[in-house]
Design a protein around this nucleic acid. Structure first.
Lengths: 223, 223
DNA sequence: CCTACCGATCGGTAGG
DNA sequence: CCTACCGATCGGTAGG
C-alpha cells in the first residue's frame, strides 16, 4: 500500500545498476561478511572461557567485536547456538590436528611414541594458541541443549577412539598397568585438568608437561 | 514522630508476658533454627552441582527446602555467601577425613600404602556420600569473590600439603618417576575429573578406582 | 547490522 | 521466616 508518507526520490530503480561492479563497499567499515561470524566465535570463546557461559552476556560478546547489543542474533539464533559453535569449532580443530599425527599403531614398539604424540597434541589443543575453545567445551557443556550436547559427544567419541588402540598396545606391552578403559578416563582427567592450573604457572613447557605425563603413566624398563 | 495514622490497639505491652514459657512453637511447622541453615547448604550443594551456580536460582534453593523466595536471605546475606558455605563445609569435611587417615610417612616402604589411602579417601570425598560439595568447589570457584576464593585456596593448600611428603618418598623410592610437583597436579587432575564421569557409569567401585589409579601412577617391581 | 524496545527473571530488601 | 515488592539485567525481537 503506497501512502503519502513515502519519501519521493532514491527509488530502488535508481540503485539497481550499481550492484555488480566493484567490491561490496568496505572502505571505512570493515564488515567482511563471514569474518564477523568468526570474530564472534573467537570473542565468545575467550569470554566463555574466562567468565563462564552464564556470567557472559551477549552484550559483552557484541562489545568485544564492536557490535551493538542485538547484532549477534543476526549471526546466531540463540546464545546457546553461539556456545555450540565455539565447541564445534574447537572439536573440529582438535580432530583435524590429531588426525594429522604420524601415529604408527601397527608395531607394539611404536605405541609409546604414539601416546607421547597424542598427549603432546592434546596439551597443545588445551593450552597452546587458540586454546579457549576446548576448555569451554570441557567446562560448559552442561549449558548446551540435548541435541547440541549429543553432537559434541559424537565428536568427543571420535577423538577418544584414536587413543584406545594405543593404550591397548601399551597394556599388552606391560607399559600400562591399569585397566585400559579406566586408564583412559584417568589420563584424560590428568591432561584436561591442566586447563585449570596451567596459565597460572607457565613454569613448564608443553614438552615438559608431556614428558612428566609419560613418566607418570608409562612403565619403561629404564630406571 | 507520632502521627494520627498509627493504628490504636495490639500494642507491644499486651504481648510481652507470652515469651518465656513453652518451646518456640513448632508443632506443625518444623522450623528447627540452625537446621534450616544446614538444609539450605545441602540443597544448594545438590543444585549447584547439577545445574551450576548461575543456572540455579535462589528460588530453586528455597523451594527445595520448602521456604519462600526471600527466606534464604535471612540465613545468608548473598547467594555468593551460600555458595561459599557449601565449599567451606565440603573442605572442612574433606580435611577432617584426610587428617584421620593412618598415614605413616616415616618409613619409605609405607609411602605406597599412604598414597593409596589418600587416593581412596579423595575418591570417597568426590564420589561417595555427601559428594556434591567438593565438585561444586572444583567447578564453581570462579563464582566466589576474591576474599572467599582466598579462603578456599587456603583450605586447598592445607589439603594438598599432606600429599607432598608421600609423593616425595615415592619419588625417592623410584616408584614415582615424574617431577613431584607436576605429578601432584596431574594426579589431582586424574582424580578430580572422575566427578565428571563417575555417576554415569557406576561400573567401578571406589576401591577398583583406587587400584586402577595406583596401577597407573606407581611403578612397582611386580610385573 | 543498528535502533529501540519488550517481557521475563532474578537477587535482594523492607517491614513485619 | 513470610509477604509484597523493587530495580536492574538480559536474551531476544521487529522493522528497517
Amino acid at each position: 500500500m503506497t501512502t503519502a508518507l513515502q519519501r519521493p526520490s532514491t527509488s530502488s530503480i535508481a540503485l539497481t545498476p550499481k550492484r555488480p561492479r566493484g567490491r561490496p563497499r568496505k572502505t571505512l567499515d570493515e564488515r567482511d561478511d563471514g569474518n564477523r561470524r568468526v570474530a564472534l566465535i573467537g570473542a565468545a570463546a575467550k569470554l566463555f572461557r574466562r567468565k563462564g557461559f552464564h556470567a557472559t552476556t551477549t552484550r559483552d560478546i557484541a562489545a568485544a567485536v564492536d557490535m551493538h547489543s542485538g547484532s549477534p542474533f543476526y549471526h546466531f539464533k540463540t546464545k546457546e547456538a553461539l556456545l555450540h559453535a565455539v565447541m564445534d569449532e574447537g572439536m573440529q580443530n582438535a580432530l583435524a590436528q590429531q588426525a594429522a599425527l604420524p601415529l604408527q599403531t601397527d608395531r607394539a614398539e611404536h605405541a609409546e611414541h604414539a601416546l607421547s604424540l597424542l598427549i603432546r597434541n592434546h596439551f597443545g589443543v588445551l593450552l597452546g594458541a587458540r586454546s579457549d575453545f576446548i576448555p569451554v567445551m570441557l567446562y560448559e557443556w552442561r549449558c548446551l541443549n540435548t541435541r547440541q550436547r549429543n553432537a559434541v559427544k559424537r565428536q568427543q567419541c571420535a577423538y577418544e577412539a584414536m587413543w584406545l588402540p594405543v593404550l591397548r598396545a601399551l597394556y599388552d606391552n606391560g607399559q600400562l598397568r591399569a585397566d585400559v578403559h579406566l586408564a583412559r578416563l584417568l589420563i584424560f582427567g590428568a591432561l584436561n585438568w591442566s586447563a585449570q592450573w596451567y596459565s597460572a604457572r607457565k613454569a613448564a613447557s608443553l614438552d615438559e608437561l608431556t614428558s612428566a605425563a609419560m613418566a607418570l603413566f608409562i612403565h619403561s624398563e629404564a630406571g
